[in-house]
Design a protein around this nucleic acid. Sequence first.
DNA 1: TTCATATTACAATGATCATCGAAATGTGGA
DNA 2: TCCACATTTCGATGATCATTGTAATATGAA
Lengths: 229, 229
Amino acid sequence: MKAGPIAAHPAAMISDPSRAAMLTAMMDGRFHPASELAYMAGIKPQTASYHLAKLEEAGMIAMHKQGRHRYYGLKSHDVAAVVETLLLLAPPVEIKSLRQSEENRHLRRARTCYDHVAGDLGIRLRDAMIEAGVIREEADAFAVTGEGGAFFEHMGIDVEAVRKKRRSFCSKCLDWSERTPHLAGSLGSAMLERLLELRWLRRMEGTRALHITDEGSRGLRATFHIEIP
Amino acid sequence: MKAGPIAAHPAAMISDPSRAAMLTAMMDGRFHPASELAYMAGIKPQTASYHLAKLEEAGMIAMHKQGRHRYYGLKSHDVAAVVETLLLLAPPVEIKSLRQSEENRHLRRARTCYDHVAGDLGIRLRDAMIEAGVIREEADAFAVTGEGGAFFEHMGIDVEAVRKKRRSFCSKCLDWSERTPHLAGSLGSAMLERLLELRWLRRMEGTRALHITDEGSRGLRATFHIEIP
DNA sequence: TTCATATTACAATGATCATCGAAATGTGGA
DNA sequence: TCCACATTTCGATGATCATTGTAATATGAA
């Protein structure tokens, strides 16, 4: 009789606040030691271990050992996609502490969304690239224009190589803080990678927030006409 | 300290099997009376009422009264998107009863995915349209080709009108039973609407499964070269 | 008004499951 | 070999929450 509720199980994996916190931490697309995830979720290592075992059994995270550490990370893009979509459904975050509001400000300004840039910076990059005519917004995705090729080459990104990857190329990712789509897919991923490589952005410890370096401020202004206050 | 686990709340709304069953029932994109949803989930009306109130408070479903009935349905596409993505993460369904396997067969053959056709039929329609050169698969979405315009007009669908709707036009929707994308977006929606109008398909009671009528078999064969056994 | 039906409100019950202390296992370094 | 640290296993505790019986409210029909 009950044919449908198969969606309940994966949802239950995310419905626990501690697990959600750990999954969100892994949304930076990297692998983290169990103890770090425990700390980020505010729980004891035993509890974290219990949760991580569950998530692994559910096929949502992957683990690799290295020495006495065990590193955990999201198993697939699908998992990241679900979490991001759930964030979109979540009610606006209420600010409880100064500390939290600080972190929130950072996250809203610039953060990773699995493997690409999101937050205000993500949107401004998108706008700048559209303005410059290097990408174009279509109904279901973005597209690289004719001029785009030269631009990305100048940025140090090989568009044709990126296009060949067996995943979506230039898709839209709906942003929970901005409620408007930014650039995701393999091109979004290549973009983030390059911005980190150029040291325009730096990952902040223990959070998905991204720090814009001084070099980054200059570079973003020169290349994208984005002013960082 | 805990900045992330906001995703937990919407996930918790879906993590209960009864709620998941009701949401899945609403995935046909229509509104259902509370009692029907209770029956589909296999719970008493009181329990259903409790769950529906929760879901409404969470902003996931909408309600309108009509006489002594209250009709509930999904509030936005986002909710449908989350449920569909969760289904993708779910482990393969194990078959427990003959009845269930029957329903499963129907669902796999043809069903609605919120507002468009999914299941085997969805994939075969996609393939047929690509084969016929009326749509083209791109990296992040489908696109209507030059010849496409005439074809859809022949089908009784005004592509330009559909394109103008303020939502994605021709997007991909990853199918949990087929694990390959079918046509969604406003064009997918228009397509389902038209197939129901032509009486090629009929909604089956109390499930998302679609029945292919005899007329439909003939029509699908003539127009799409799809053989229905 | 009276009855039937749809739905919600309330209160009690019971099961599930997250949590953590204690202890075990595993790994690296001295 | 001994110690320190990372992680898991086990067992007990406690809180949350789905469920339903009973009762109330609301709407429509006779």
